[in-house]
Every structure is written in C-alpha cells, then in structure tokens.
Design a protein around this nucleic acid. Structure first.
Lengths: 201, 201
DNA sequence: TTTATATGAATGAATG
DNA sequence: CATTCATTCATATAAA
C-alpha cells in the first residue's frame, strides 16, 4: 500500500516521452496495456499511471502551447509563423499494417491550431475583457515576463536508442488495436464506443 | 541570473493575501493575468507565480484546517461547533469596476467544509475491477501490472460514506452551506466570463 | 554547517 | 478534455 503515488523512472519517462513525441496522445486501452507491460520492466507501474500520464502530459502541453500562441499573437497579431514554438498535435493516420505502433503520421504536421482551440476559438482575444480559460494554467505570458514551467526532460540519450525499436513497434499495432491518437474516435470500433469527445454535449 | 524562484515582495504578498482573504481561490486565467499585471508594478512576477501562489496557499490553508479539525475531533469527538476556524471558499463576485483588486465578495461564507472534501476520498479503495470500455475507463486486466483508473467504480457503498459526509455531519454546517462552494464561477460577471469550455452538464 | 521549516514549482490523480 | 486537488520535490531562509 505504500505506493502512494507513482513516480516514473527515468527510463519509463523516456519511453513515455518518446511515444508522446511520436504523437501518441490518446492511447487505447490495449495500447496502454502494452505500454504498461513494457514499462513494468523498468519499475512498478500500472495502467492508470500510463493513462494519466498521457492525459496530463497532453493537457499541459497544450496549455502551454495555447498560452504561447496567445502571447505571441498578442504581440504579433498579423504574423505568427516566424517563430520557434514547439509543434502541436497533428493527427496521425494509422497505417493499415497490423501494428498499432506503426503510425504513419503526416510528415508535416501542420500545427493544427485548430485542435488547440477546437471549442473556443475566441479565446485568442481574451486579453481585455477576458474570455477565460479559467485559471488552470496560463502560467505564462504577462506584461513582459513570460517563461513557462519547464517540463521535465530526460536527458540520457543512450537509453533512448535502446527503446526506439520498441516504441516504433508500439506505435503500430494495427487497426484492430485501434487507431492511435485521433482525438475523435472517428474510426472507433466496437470495443471503443465513442464518447463524443470534442463536442460540448 | 536565473531567477531560480520567485519570491513575492511584501507588497505583492499583501495584495495576494488580500485577494485570498476576499475569497479568491481559483482565479481564472484572465484574473491571473490581471493580477500579474498589477503585481508586476511591485517587482518581477509571472503569471505562473500567481497561479501557483493561489494553488499552494489554498492547499496549505485547507491542509492546515483539515489537520486542526482532525485534531479537534480526536479530542472532542462530540463537540465541535465551539470553534473559530477560518473560512473556506465561496466565489467572489467581481464588482463592476475594472480592477480585480477590489472585489466584492459574499458577506457570508459558511465554512463549507464541504469544499474540503469535495471529491470522494476514495483513497481508501484502490483496487479496480475492470470492464472493458474504451481506453478511458476500462483500465484493468493486464499481465500483472493492472489497474486502470476506477473512475466510477466505488464498489461497496460503505466506502462512499467516508470522510466527506462524516466530517460534514460531525461539523454541522447546515444544509445551506452546500450551495456556496461551487468550483466554478457561477456568479461571474462581465469581468470574468465563464469560458463555457466543456459545458458538459 | 546541519537541520527544520516555509513555500515556490511540478506533476500524479481524479472528477465531471 | 478542462479543472481542481493532493503530494511531492526543491530551494531559500530560519533556527540550532
């Protein structure tokens, strides 16, 4: 019982980040399952940990991004693509191989700001009166002092390569393991009833 | 050089405390923004500092409260309403001035211990039994490292009645304390438009 | 210098 | 998926 809270080991973290980097966003249960299995090689871990990790990581990533964009656009309303901010979340296109982990993702992932503001495009102009994202975090952007909370980053490149293969494999489990990271279950199968994700019910 | 860690200046601190005293608890992003702007007059500060400040302050406040209550209850299990403890969080009602710093807040704020245990302390149960839904909740069954988030599980009604209800009952807050502790800006005014984000209700 | 405490920062875990 | 809560980590400062 004394496992109050899971804490990812460096290796686990690295793998997760790698998957994330490869655009895994909403892993299906079976993916979570597999990932968990694999990660358990490096330390205790449960499915929920993996699940939550992706949830949080994605959320915080996007929040940060959102704020960066906002901030940027405020300064540069007309021109916004001259910078260097990280890449948002494109949708992957699952291959038709039988491996989930083998995602084909758009070689170019248009930042799809769209996904960032899928439900409230108007928030870009929330400065004065305040359309509000609610406190959760904007953590950033201010009169002049920006600076986001740094995400924990695992260094240690060596281990990285080690995992590479597995990750790649992971990313492709085939269609029946359910498509990778689409936010909306467009290709949902019987096992995964859509939850009406993006919509405001 | 690197300002490793923000440290509020006395004036900043004072303002923050004042807002907190006025029951600001979960400032929205625009509120955070405004506050940050204002506080930057007195020293370097970023949105995240403000955000974290509220998070931490609230958390520690409630933590302390919780402890006090517990302590008290241990000594005085049957009598607990002779006390003087501080008050938890109602929502502020923004004035129609354009300054956040002068908020009008509800004159009455029933302690609403409710807020202290707003979500089920299901901490007691940590075994999940799984169905198999979509990735989000099935969360279970695995080689050995199972356990997905149990979200709605909570078997055994008894656990349900845990701390929350119990504490409430012990403390006697009266029925009318319930209404006030909404987490969302129910009484948000023009200054703090709700974001209508999820709108899941 | 070492230890204890206050608190900023970060993130896991939920809930709705 | 947005929010919020609980914990924990990290560091600055006070105390010993």
């Amino acid at each position: 019982m004394p496992r109050p809270r899971w804490s990812p080991t460096p290796q686990q973290m690295m793998i997760l980040q790698d998957l994330y980097r490869k655009r895994m966003r909403n892993p299906t249960s079976s993916q979570v399952q597999k990932i968990t299995d694999h990660l358990s090689l490096y330390g205790n871990i449960q499915c929920k940990n993996v699940f939550y990790w992706f949830q949080n990581h994605k959320a915080r990533d996007r929040q940060k991004l959102r704020k960066e964009l906002l901030h940027k656009m405020q300064k540069n309303p007309s021109d916004d693509d001259d910078d260097d901010f990280p890449a948002p979340q494109p949708q992957l296109t699952p291959t038709n191989t039988s491996n989930i982990l083998d995602y084909n993702f758009p070689a170019n992932f248009p930042p799809t700001l769209h996904t960032l503001y899928s439900h409230s495009p108007s928030m870009l102009i929330d400065q004065a009166e305040g359309k509000d994202t609610s406190s959760a975090q904007m953590m950033n952007n201010n009169t002049g002092n920006v600076d986001f909370p740094k995400q924990c980053v695992i260094e240690n490149g060596m281990i990285r390569t080690n995992v590479q293969d597995w990750v790649l494999m992971m990313i492709d489990m085939g269609p029946n393991s359910i498509p990778c990271c689409s936010n909306r279950p467009l290709e949902t199968l019987e096992l995964f009833p859509i939850k009406a994700t993006g919509f405001k019910e």
